[in-house]
Structures are given as structure tokens and as C-alpha cells.
């Protein structure tokens, strides 16, 4: 089976030093891949490169077998329509209400009439666990957890095969974060999604990921199941997972 994302020999320079130096990573269809690493190790930079926002200095990134930085604009658009992105700050358009926010990709890339678009947008709102009446509200009127769900609803608007999430549970209370993790699992199973998730949240890593890639020293130090990853001898990985928080999250899994 060919991987859905193939990053090979990626090099990115930022502010005079190499953030990524010969980074290789593959994502298989149907898995939830976590990306972790210390602050400033280039998790978000890698994510931005994967969604074609940052052009790498060298190396290739292929999604659905298309090299993102070589293909024509039309082909790139076709690839972009097949993935959804939830940004760290949700990036909902503040001048549009939720319904319009989620309708936006549908209006741009489908030929449906307005009524169908609105109903599909409403479906995505309800699917992500929000009440229908929030559809008429503006992002400024909603809480952090609701915004996150709305951002997810917009990322899912076009029924993507691939979903990128940047720190989805950051800044949420534990109950909301757990709810969000459960929602992600349900969506992943029913919509047959492949998910790439950048996160610091150890509970998320333990509960929902199939594999986790640990970034450090400009490359991927290890990609494995969480239970295997924590036993990796590399000092950076040991420091990351052996702190009190890491231990607690691990214990929480065993009980």
C-alpha cells in the first residue's frame, strides 16, 4: 500500500539555521499519526510544509502521489480539496457567522445550490457536536471549545480523506479536550479519515494515535506506537516522556 503522505529528505532553513535537516516521514492511509517534539523543534513548520504553505529549501513532499511543490496549480487545488486543516487558532473568518464559515469551501468548490450548501454546512455543525442554533452566531460569540469544533466542521466541509490538526486540544479544559478526542475518533472511523495531528497533549497521544513521530535534531528520531516510543533510548525522547506529566499520562493508560 502506498503511503498517503511521503516526506523525503526535507530540508527547511529558518532564521539562519536548519529547522529540518534530511527529515523523512510517511503517513499510511487510515491511521492517526501524532507529531511531537520539544518547543521549537519544527512541528508546525513541518505541518505548514505538508499543507503547501511553506516551500522547503530542498526535498519533496508528496500527498496522494502528487509532489506538492512541482504540480500545476490545478492539480494542487485538487489535492487541497482532498484534505482539511484545523489551525492552532481555528482561523475562522471573524466577519462571517458559523454557517457562512463552513459554507465557504462548499460555495467555492462545488456546484450545489445555496439551500443544499446551507443544509450540508448545518450537518457538519451538528456532526461536530454543536447545536444548530450556533450556526447563526459569529466566532467572537463562542467559547474556545465550540470554536475548535467549528474549526473542525469547516475542515470537514468537503469530506476530506486527510485531516491535519495543529494542537487541537491546546487551551481546552480536560473535559472538553477528552470530548474532542472522542469526537475525532468517531469521525475518523465513520468518515474513513487519515489524521495527522501535531500536539503536546500526552493524553491525546496515548488515547487516539496509532503511531507517533518524535521530532528532534532536525529529523524524525523515532516513529512508533506510543507504548514503544516511550521506551526509545534517545535522551530527548526520554526527557520528554519521563517527566511527571509523561508518567501520569502513561499510568492513566494502564489503569
Amino acid at each position: 500500500m502506498t503511503p498517503i503522505i511521503d516526506v523525503s529528505h526535507l530540508k527547511i532553513k529558518k532564521g539562519g539555521h536548519w529547522v529540518h535537516n534530511d527529515l523523512n516521514l510517511t503517513v499510511n492511509r487510515g491511521e492517526i499519526l501524532g507529531i511531537v517534539g520539544g518547543s521549537g523543534c519544527g512541528k508546525t513548520t513541518l505541518l505548514r510544509a505538508m499543507i503547501a504553505l511553506t516551500k522547503p529549501d530542498s526535498g519533496t513532499i508528496s500527498i496522494f502521489n502528487e509532489n506538492l511543490f512541482k504540480v500545476s496549480a490545478e492539480k494542487l487545488l485538487a489535492v487541497q480539496c482532498r484534505f482539511g486543516v484545523l489551525f492552532q487558532e481555528n482561523a475562522l473568518f471573524s466577519s462571517l457567522n458559523l454557517l457562512e464559515n463552513i459554507s465557504f469551501p462548499l460555495c467555492e468548490h462545488t456546484l450545489l445550490d445555496k439551500q443544499s450548501i446551507e443544509r450540508l454546512a448545518l450537518l457538519k455543525i451538528v456532526m461536530t457536536g454543536l447545536l444548530p442554533k450556533t450556526a447563526a452566531q459569529y466566532p467572537a460569540e463562542l467559547s474556545g471549545g465550540m470554536l475548535r469544533r467549528a474549526g473542525l466542521a469547516r475542515a470537514l466541509a468537503l469530506d476530506p480523506e486527510l485531516l491535519f490538526l495543529d494542537e487541537p486540544t491546546a487551551g481546552l479544559d480536560p473535559v472538553t479536550a477528552t470530548g474532542f478526542d472522542e469526537l475525532l475518533l468517531t469521525l475518523k472511523h465513520s468518515m474513513n479519515l487519515t489524521v495527522v495531528i501535531v500536539t503536546h497533549d500526552l493524553d491525546t497521544l496515548w488515547t487516539i494515535t496509532d503511531r507517533v513521530a518524535f521530532l528532534g535534531e532536525g529529523r524524525v528520531l523515532c516513529v512508533d506506537k506510543m507504548s514503544q516510543l516511550v521506551t526509545h533510548p534517545h535522551p530527548l525522547i526520554q526527557v520528554f516522556f519521563s517527566g511527571p506529566r509523561g508518567r501520569r499520562a502513561e499510568d492513566g493508560q494502564k489503569h
Partner: peptide, 23 residues
């Protein structure tokens, strides 16, 4: 699998003129 996501309750909340209008 889709049925677990799009439950009868979800359907009930989205069919007909369920789309809320801005005032």
C-alpha cells in the same frame, strides 16, 4: 460506521427548514 455519526437525532436537527436565520 456512518450511521454512528449521522444518527436519527442528527437528521432530525438538520432536515427541513432547520437552518437558523440571522436576524
Amino acid at each position: 460506521a456512518m450511521r454512528t455519526l449521522i444518527t436519527p437525532k442528527v437528521i432530525q436537527m438538520t432536515v427541513g427548514d432547520a437552518v437558523p436565520k440571522e436576524w
